[in-house]
Amino acid sequence: MAARRKSAPPAPALLEWAMGGLGLLLVLAALAVIVFEALRAGEPARLEARLIGTRPAGAGWLADVEVRNLGGETAAAVGIEGRLGAETAEATVDYVPAHGKHRVTLAFDADPRAARVSVAGWSEP
């Protein structure tokens, strides 16, 4: 260290203090959120599918479905199933993050307003 003290280092610029402060703030904020998530985690993934709307598309109909993960763990390869009478439609979602949601569209021949949508299953990421 002594050798490096030949000339006193120049004082940091104001911009430097500002950026440094921002960095510190971001690190502490990130740690706070991560620790908060860690305390909330452990609760396994719990998925719910809900029909949020239908719209005609060409000869058929589309059903918009929202999948919510109410648990603290992320679910992967989530299978969504919709049934309308004898007709079934399905879609797969790569990931639904913990406490997150994802939108899926299912295709039917008739107006799927009365369709029953459900989550068929998922795997651990």
Partner: peptide, 29 residues
């Protein structure tokens, strides 16, 4: 600390531009 701020700003800007950051996503994500 400055480098971390630079890294975070760069990541946020680029990921927002790519449409990777979802506005409604949980904060943990």
């Amino acid at each position: 600390l400055v480098a971390l701020a630079v890294g975070a700003i760069t990541a946020a800007a680029v990921l927002a531009l790519f449409g990777v950051l979802e506005p409604g996503a949980p904060p943990g994500q």
